[in-house]
């Protein structure tokens, strides 16, 4: 093949090809480069490279070209580190090579369009950020669902489902560690009357106050659960001596009969309490619950 074909070949290449002399005068500018840059070959031939492509004025480009002229080793500039090298529409990688033609040295600059890659990666990043956004939303929803599944909607304390989960766990722990597990049955006396007298709305708030009162009187790992309309269960794990229990009981006892101010009414609230212990009062949760229920009932009778 004869060299005369070379310009024809360069014309077909899907890369911007620019040839320059050592003094940086442009001698060739292929059609692809015309598309990338927007300027026709006839307008740029004979002009200096940095007049046509001003971003190549930066000192590291001139240093690289001097080195290339001296050593002949190729140089590479990435589109990512050199944004908008030609213009804002195209992101290009730039490769520079030295070519010896007879006695003359020419530099070949290849501008490789990678705009498509940038678009794809931006798309990918967009998806990833959407995904991570969705993920956060899902996690929040999961929390809400968990809250709905395990907590009483009115009072915010545990519901029966959560109680059962913890009851089994604490019971087996007590068996393993040889400790006592306390189970307290709490009933709000005359709750129906409170509802009838002050309205359901106020009654609901009273129930919430009782739940908070129980939560505040117990320890961190104790579980307060709303068991039914006006009934609460409290699990007291890891009781080693009766003294541990008395400490909690005395705090609840102090609040057993009191008047609370709610919605402008002064309401008398009293609690009936029964407590059973593993292992003395039963070996299963249902045994413990029914025993505590009995004691609670006795307490209610006494207080009348």
């Amino acid at each position: 093949m004869n060299d005369a074909h070379l310009p024809g070949i360069l014309n077909c290449i899907n890369e911007g090809i620019v040839l320059i002399k050592r003094d940086l005068e442009i001698t060739y500018w292929n059609p692809f480069m015309e598309n990338l840059h927007g300027e026709k070959s006839s307008k740029v031939l004979g002009r200096k490279l940095e007049d046509v492509l001003p971003s190549l004025k930066q000192p590291f480009f001139s240093r690289a070209m001097e080195q290339l002229v001296a050593s002949g080793n190729p140089v590479f500039f990435s589109a990512a580190m050199h944004r908008d090298l030609i213009n804002g529409q195209h992101q290009v990688n730039l490769k520079m090579n030295r070519i010896q033609v007879g006695d003359e040295l020419i530099l070949m600059l290849e501008f490789i369009d990678v705009t498509g890659q940038f678009k794809r990666i931006n798309q990918l990043r967009c998806y990833v950020s959407q995904l991570s956004h969705l993920n956060t939303e899902l996690k929040q929803k999961e929390k809400v669902i968990e809250k709905l599944a395990y907590y009483d909607r009115l009072t915010g304390v545990a519901n029966r489902a959560l109680f059962e989960k913890f009851a089994d766990k604490y019971l087996s722990l007590a068996k393993r560690r040889n400790t006592m597990l306390g189970l307290m049955f709490v009933d709000v006396n005359e709750f129906k009357m409170i509802n009838d007298t002050y309205g359901h709305n106020t009654g609901d708030k009273v129930m919430t106050r009782v739940a908070s009162l129980l939560t505040e009187s117990t320890r961190k790992h104790d579980i307060v659960c709303r068991y039914g309309g006006d009934e609460f269960l409290v699990l007291l794990p890891d009781i080693r001596t009766m003294n541990d229990y008395y400490q909690i009981a005395s705090r609840i006892e102090a609040n057993k009969r009191r008047r609370i101010i709610q919605d402008g009414y002064s309401i008398a609230v009293s609690l009936s309490i029964g407590i059973s212990f593993y292992p003395d009062d039963g070996l299963t949760i249902s045994e413990l619950v029914s025993r505590a229920d009995e004691y609670m009932y006795a307490d209610k009778q006494n207080s009348r």
Partner: peptide, 10 residues
């Protein structure tokens, strides 16, 4: 990505 590769190439 390809862009990362090109950055490292430079």
């Amino acid at each position: 990505t390809d862009i990362d590769y090109d950055t490292i190439r430079e």
